[in-house]
Structures are given as structure tokens and as C-alpha cells.
Design a protein around this nucleic acid. Structure first.
Lengths: 109, 109
DNA sequence: TTGATATGTAGGAAAAATCCTACATATAGT
DNA sequence: ACTATATGTAGGATTTTTCCTACATATCAA
């Protein structure tokens, strides 16, 4: 029930950058993605595997290339997970607003 | 600018459970939190430290106890991070809807 | 078929995370 | 002052993650 693998996959900056690239530039072959990193191609390949295991990317073979595509569905789980916490930062925001109001009162005084 | 520490902190099931407890039951002393885990108290203490470093909990000393409180603000960063991906699962949902519509058409036929 | 290209996998070194058992520290109560 | 309680920190064993260099596999092009 807990989106374990998704959170783990997102914990790596390299993997988040991969997701961003696929989001902003569309599906791409593994090699083209790897070029953008200061890391060996096999390491990027491994990161792609982790993302695939988490369901965050899908792989389709195009000739000798493998195109990776962003699969955003698992991110909905993260969003759902965040849901019950929203109340808390709303409260925080309310507190902040109250403080700011008080400061304005001080200014006016 | 990237919420690195926050994602890392959320990668652990134990730490997510700590956040949930603080969310559902309010601020609590470290020991009371530790009782809920199959893990040694010092290990829970360490997890609380990671959460504190990520800004996800705050600590206030009450006598010889230390009360931990949920600080949900960093979770806003996660929510913001998700923003640009929303478009994608909307598309996914649209595709799913289209498929379901087609299935309905098949039924009617 | 032969050689070049695109990519995954194996194996292992190094770094980081996890979790434990002492131990240190600080406060409360007697 | 003395003892018990609440909790953090140190040090270390174990596991996991990360990243590398070969190497294997598959496809394309001539």
C-alpha cells in the first residue's frame, strides 16, 4: 500500500534529473540521456532500471535503441501520500499570515 | 534549490511512519515514538535526527523529554516538485478515459 | 558476413545507510 | 547528593547504494 519503491527511486538526484529530462524533452534513447550526465553510461543505465522497477519510466525498443518514456502515474501515489499533510502546512500558512497581520498593526501604530 | 534532503528523508519507511505518527497523534517525546517500532531506541533517535536535518520535525525540550513536532513546510517543496508532472498523469487519465469509452462502445454493439 | 553502434549485465571497489550495544549527559524526584 | 529516567552520541558490524571497467548481446550498414 505504501509507495516504497517510488520514494526510493526519487531519493537520487540523478534519477530525478532523468525524470525531468524525459518530462521536458520527451522520450529518448538511453545513450542520449547518458550524455547529459557526468557519470558512465552503464551507471545511467542502472538508474534507468531503478526507475523502471518503480514504474516511473517505460522502455520501448526502436531498432537498436531503447527509448525511455516518463510514466507519471506512480507520482500520483506521492501526491496522495502528501494529502493528509496538507492540513498542516495550511495551518502553518495561517500562522504566518497572522504574524504578518500583527506586523502590519505594529507599523500602523 | 532541489529538495535533496527531504526526498532522502522520505525514502525510509521508518521515517515516513514517524511523520505519520506525529501527524495523527501530535507532538510526542522521542521515547514514546520509539516504543512503536521494532527497532532500538537509539536507531529511532537517529531517524529523528535525519528528519530534523531535513526540516521535517522540530524538537523542543520539555524537562528531560524532547518533544518532536511535525514540520510540514518542507513537504510543500515536494508538492511543488510534483507540479510540472501533473500534466502527464492528466494525459494518462485522458487516455484511460478514452479506452473505457471504447469499451463501453463495444458493450453497446 | 563484418565491423560499427546502442545498450544491458557482471563483478567488484568504495561510499553511505541502517541498526545494534555501550556509554555520556542532563533533568526529576527523593 | 543520589538514583532513576529520558535521550543523544560513539563506534562498529552488516547491508545497500553507487559507480566504475570489462564484457555480452543485438541491430544496423556496407
Amino acid at each position: 500500500m505504501t509507495p516504497d519503491h517510488v520514494f526510493t527511486a526519487l531519493a537520487s538526484p540523478a534519477r530525478r534529473e532523468l525524470l525531468r529530462l524525459l518530462r521536458d524533452e520527451g522520450a529518448q534513447p538511453a545513450g542520449r540521456l547518458a550524455e547529459r550526465f557526468d557519470m558512465s553510461r552503464p551507471s545511467v543505465s542502472e538508474h534507468l532500471r531503478v526507475l523502471r522497477d518503480a514504474g516511473l519510466v517505460s522502455e520501448t525498443r526502436k531498432g537498436r535503441e531503447r527509448h525511455y518514456r516518463l510514466e507519471a502515474a506512480p507520482l500520483m501515489e506521492i501526491r496522495d501520500w502528501l494529502g493528509p499533510y496538507e492540513r498542516f502546512w495550511r495551518e502553518r500558512l495561517a500562522t504566518l499570515t497572522a504574524v504578518l497581520d500583527e506586523m502590519e498593526d505594529d507599523d500602523a501604530r
